[in-house]
Simulated assay, not measured.
Amino acid sequence: MSGMEAWYMDESSEDQRLPHRLNPNQPVSREQLQHIGVYYWKLNADIYENDPELQKIREERGYSFMDIITIHPDKLPDYGNKVKMFYEEHLHLDDEIRYILDGSSYFDVRDKDDRWIRLAVSKGDLITLPAGIYHRFTVDETNFTKAMRLFIGEPVWKAYNRPADDFDIRMTYVNSLRSS
């Protein structure tokens, strides 16, 4: 299991589900992602219901809430609009924690210079995006991903589309980048 791959995106407006790699490819390392507050684990998704490793992460980080979403034309009501909505650039006031149980998809995040980095996630990948980071989500060409959504306390699904620079959490996040 090699784990998640990340790279800088091209500027093309072609189908969002395509990889959008630069030519030549510009990979992004785990360390580079950590500098912008994005963290990643590889777990065994086949045992997610009783996985001691997942339990440990949840306990250490206080991820008390959990639900599961399946993103597929047959499984998600109003699929077309939802996929469009997830792909609007936005931020949250809380961390976004996603554990991919099946399938594959992309999370795009902005780096310090406002360039898009694409994270290719697949079964077994658990990622956390920090509160205040601009990001978006899309399915890939398989049009299928099943993900566990984790949350500290009560879930708040509110997304604030860009521009949302006036939020305290955005300013806190931007300031944290300066110090790292």
Score class of each variant (00 low, 15 high):
N25V: 14
P27G: 02
D46V: 00
S29A: 00
R58T: 02
L22G: 02
Q32H: 08
D67T: 05
G62K: 08
I47K: 13
Q26S: 10
P27M: 06
N23I: 12
E60S: 12
E49K: 15
Q55K: 13
N44P: 01
N25M: 11
Q32M: 10
R30T: 10
Y48K: 09
K42P: 01
S64F: 00
E31G: 02
K56G: 02
H72M: 01
W41K: 08
K56L: 12
Q34A: 15
P27V: 04
P27W: 01
R58A: 11
S29C: 00
A45I: 04
P24I: 05
I36C: 06
E59Y: 08
N25H: 00
G37P: 05
P52A: 06
E53H: 11
P19D: 13
N44V: 10
I69E: 03
V28Y: 09
I57K: 07
H35T: 14
H20L: 02
Y40L: 08
K42I: 02
Q34Y: 07
N50T: 14
Q26M: 12
Y63F: 15
D51C: 15
R21D: 04
L33H: 08
I71G: 01
I68Q: 12
K42L: 14
Q26I: 10
Q32I: 00
L54E: 04
I36M: 05
H35L: 15
R21W: 04
N44D: 15
I47L: 09
E31N: 11
G62M: 06
S64W: 00
T70K: 05
P52F: 11
W41P: 01
I36V: 14
Y40G: 03
R21Q: 15
E31I: 06
Y48N: 12
N50P: 00
N25D: 06
D51R: 06
I71L: 12
E53I: 07
D46K: 11
P27Q: 10
L43V: 12
P24F: 05
D67N: 13
L43G: 05
